[in-house]
Nucleic acid binder design. Structure first.
Lengths: 159, 159
DNA sequence: TTCCAAATGCAAGTTTGTTTCGCCGGAGAT
DNA sequence: ATCTCCGGCGAAACAAACTTGCATTTGGAA
């Protein structure tokens, strides 16, 4: 079997902490901050990208600046929990560009969606397509965000 | 008054679409894709960063790889909707590293949180700190994510 | 039509990221 | 105990990308 990648150590965590704040930080500065040479930093970053610890490098776009000022949470409850229907729902939600995030959850709902739209008319159209047009959706509850207090994908890192 | 920044055009949208997928894409390739020279691409990116259209450039870290495999949604309902108490809650949630995302919403809840933790014991400790230790929290509902079907901050872009 | 402003493309300069090389330290075998 | 192999680290050379300045063109307003 292939050699398992080395475990994450405190150097890696320190590097990740900087990169998930700003991945344009020069490797030289990262090296100074964590007491490593720039090539060592580079090797560790590359390794973490290949092993999947770093899932991607992305620009964060301000939705309001591109005409999508409304963020909405939706709790979706299905009629049937059959695996096949769950998977179909996952696929449909994933393929919908307005659905920024989709989670399959325990509790009083089956899915929680984070939706980004231009206006409420667009949301209404989306509900027709995703929910009213789907016999397996028993009901859904809508929460409109008035304030995006904290937004990001930052993961809390030990150390 | 300061000159208002130029409106976003279809070139900008095409550039954003590529950057929010992978912001390490060389500007030369972006230029080829959108029919612009590399410096023109560079100028537009810089302008959008300064004007806030691009809110940041970050590495996306896989939570499970750094010992935070559990994602939880929490709907929080407050006792009082007094502005001062709302703001206090916003500040407390924002300052909590386990709270990855926090939204102030309409509907049957006041806040929706996205929480990242190592295990349920850590979540239990967090609820004690944030909810049971706060007299203004009337109740909260927990949804544990079994599958992070779609995760990201990607904004749907026209065009 | 004429002038002005903004944006583009080209080319050079600078910074950054990448690769290669040699060295050091540790684990295992002889 | 010593030798050898292996993996990682640091220094330097290399290549690539990014950034800047300037001349040109384009679009619009006077």
């Amino acid at each position: 079997m292939p050699p398992s990648p080395p475990a994450i150590d405190s150097f890696d965590l320190a590097i990740l902490a900087m990169l998930q704040r700003d991945n344009t930080t020069p490797q030289r500065l990262i090296g100074e901050a964590v007491n490593l040479s720039a090539p060592a930093v580079q090797r560790r970053i590359k390794r973490m990208e290949q092993s999947g610890v770093i899932a991607g490098n992305v620009a964060v776009v301000e939705p309001a600046a591109v005409g999508q000022p409304i963020t909405i949470f939706v709790e979706v409850e299905l009629e049937s929990e059959r695996t096949e229907l769950i998977d179909a729902a996952k696929r449909q939600f994933s393929a919908t560009s307005e659905v920024q995030q989709c989670y399959y959850v325990t509790g009083e709902a089956d899915f929680i969606l984070v939706v980004t739209v231009a206006d409420m008319a667009a949301y209404e159209a989306l509900t027709r397509k995703l929910f009213f047009g789907n016999n397996n959706v028993r009901k859904f509850r809508t929460f409109v965000a008035m304030d995006r207090v904290k937004v990001g994908l930052t993961v809390p890192l030990p150390g």
